[in-house]
Each structure stands twice: as C-alpha cells, then as structure tokens.
Simulated assay, not measured.
Amino acid sequence: MVYTLRQFAEMFHTTGHTIRYYTDIGLLPCERDAGNRRVFNEESVNWMQGILCLKGCGASIEGIKEYADLCRLPESEDTLRARYRIILQQREQAYRKVEEAKATAAYMDDKVRHYEAILSGRIPDDTNPEHWNADARPERHA
C-alpha cells in the first residue's frame, strides 16, 4: 500500500511538517511519485513506528538518527551490539518514565481524595495557592 503525506501524517497523528522533516534529515525513507510528491510504503510505516517508539522513550532526534543509521549499515556484530546498547538505554528511560507516571498518578489519586473530602464537607477548602503561607503550604512531591 502507498500513502500520501497527508494520509501518512494522519495515520501517526502528527503533522506533514514533522513527516517532511524526518524525510529531509534522512530519518524516514520515502519515495517520490510522478509529481515529485512524497509517498510512503509499508517500509516507511515500519520506520515510523520505530521512530515513535524511540521518541516515546525520550530519545532525541539525534539518538534516533544514530540508531537508524546503524540499521542501514551492513549487518555485523559491531552494528548489532551498538543498536543493542541504544535499545538498552532507551528501555531504561522508558522504565524511568513509567515510574514517574506512577508517582504522578498516585499524587493525583491523593488530590482526588482530598477534593472529595472538601466537597463532602469533611475538611475545609485548603486547595487555593492564593491562601497558602509558609506554614500551610502543601508538601512538595517530586
């Protein structure tokens, strides 16, 4: 199957500008049609899924490009090990993000319970930062 730039961008919930940027820097392969417009195939879909996965882990564009460049080199144990190191680093970043998300969700659960207590009249409203002072400031959670 072949996709236009617009179809491809919509498929990945991004913009045409982003897709053009990725193709311009050689990160995302594409072909050109008779009118010299970018068109994308299933290989492009595979690459974009990989790009988004690495990006979701927090990889920089430069880091993703390094990984992609390694993938395009002739297969060898050295390139395989280099790609493996990058994937290990990104996995570590992904797990860090999971832990941060869990901590944020737990904090928000506490806030929901606190608001429910206020709304039910069990405690006074102490949620407006305008009324806080050094003694009544909530503890910072990071």
Rank of each mutant, 00 (worst) to 15 (best):
M1C: 14
V2I: 13
L5Q: 06
R6F: 03
F8V: 01
M11I: 08
F12C: 08
F12I: 01
F12D: 00
T14P: 09
H17D: 07
H17C: 03
Y22K: 03
Y22E: 04
Y22D: 06
I25S: 03
I25R: 07
P29V: 05
P29H: 05
C30A: 14
E31K: 14
R32M: 02
R32V: 00
D33T: 03
N36R: 14
N36Q: 10
R37C: 10
N41S: 10
W47G: 04
W47C: 04
Q49E: 09
L52W: 09
L54K: 06
L54A: 04
K55W: 02
K55N: 04
C57R: 01
C57K: 02
I61V: 13
A68W: 02
D69I: 00
L70N: 05
R72P: 02
L73A: 15
P74V: 00
D78Q: 15
D78P: 15
L80Q: 14
R85I: 01
I86A: 05
Q89E: 09
Q89H: 13
E92R: 10
A94C: 07
K97N: 11
E100R: 13
K102A: 00
T104S: 12
A106Q: 15
Y107H: 13
M108W: 09
M108G: 11
D109H: 10
D110G: 15
D110F: 09
E116P: 00
L119S: 15
G121R: 04
R122T: 15
I123R: 05
N128H: 12
N128M: 07
P129M: 05
P129R: 03
W132S: 00
D135N: 14
E139Q: 06
